[in-house]
């Protein structure tokens, strides 16, 4: 067996074992179907949710629309968090004054669990896209900010000295030295932020928006459709994983500092 095949087998071991356990539990009648539907039932529900024609069932064919809605919200919130978090984190990491200025504000806000923002967001933005985007951005901001800050603080002083003696101005040094040197930490922050974005997306969509993967899960609970809940969970797991890989891939494509230091 080649190294690649071996690695693949190892990485699939746990998912397959889980699937097997699930089979045993539901098929053996150990757990009643309304609590844990069988894999077959979930597969059918999923197949209908994704590929079915509209009208075949309550959720048939809704996947594409839900995915588009959720993806848009995640990307919007995540982008907002990145656009604010990276520059602010880098500034705070390099400039003691900025760090002192924002330390209490950011530290205080972070101490508030993200879910606390939900009532306020609903009052401010009503039920809908903006509440979800706000929650996602709020939650994703902190890991992105914190990792950018740490990355900026950890840049070896000798690199800035080397840059200065080679005639690189401070402004150019931001792009030539600070950003690439902090890149590994920035990437860690973005990946954590992306992960948390999906968590808060579902939270935001639980509040009664008509579409989105989180909305489907909540809706299915009210109709007692446990199979659809499981379909939603599995899809979010898969899409979240794909998003993470795409994020890393995009960063590696765009920045050679990401390509070479990861």
């Amino acid at each position: 067996m080649g190294g690649r095949a071996k690695n693949l087998a190892v990485s699939l071991l746990l998912p397959l074992a889980t699937l097997l356990l699930w089979f045993v539990l539901s098929a053996g009648g150990l757990v009643p179907g309304y609590l844990l539907p069988s894999p077959g039932k979930v597969l059918v529900a999923g197949q209908q949710y994704i590929f079915g024609a509209t009208g075949e069932g309550p959720y048939a064919g809704r996947f594409a629309g839900d995915l588009a809605a959720s993806l848009a919200r995640v990307l919007l919130g995540f982008s907002l968090a990145a656009v604010l978090g990276i520059p602010l984190g880098l500034c705070a990491g390099r400039l003691a004054l900025v760090n002192r200025l924002v330390a209490h504000a950011v530290g205080g806000l972070r101490a508030v669990p993200g879910i606390c923002w939900l009532p306020l967001a609903m009052i401010w933005f009503g039920i809908g896209v903006r509440t979800t985007v706000f929650l996602v951005a709020m939650a994703a901001f902190f890991p992105i900010y914190q990792n950018a800050l740490t990355g900026a603080q950890l840049v070896a002083p000798i690199w800035f000295q080397a840059g200065a003696m080679l005639g690189i101005s401070r402004l150019k040094g931001i792009f030539a030295i600070l950003l690439p040197a902090a890149m590994p930490n920035i990437i860690t922050g973005l990946r954590l932020g992306m992960g948390i974005s999906w968590a808060y997306l579902v939270l935001g969509e639980l509040t009664g928006v008509p579409d989105g993967l989180g909305a489907v899960i909540m809706d299915a609970r009210m109709l007692g459709q446990t199979d659809i809940i499981l379909v939603g969970i599995i899809l979010i797991a898969i899409i979240g994983r794909i998003c993470d890989r795409l994020l890393v891939g995009a960063l590696r494509l765009c920045f050679k500092s990401a390509r070479r230091q990861l």
Binding site: A156, I158, W159, Q161, A162, M165, L166, I177, P180, A181, M183, K256, S257, R260, Q261
Partner: peptide, 13 residues
């Protein structure tokens, strides 16, 4: 005035 440092000061990226 350029310096060659004792430690590794090349840019790893």
């Amino acid at each position: 005035r350029c310096v060659v440092f004792q430690e590794d000061a090349l840019f790893p990226w």
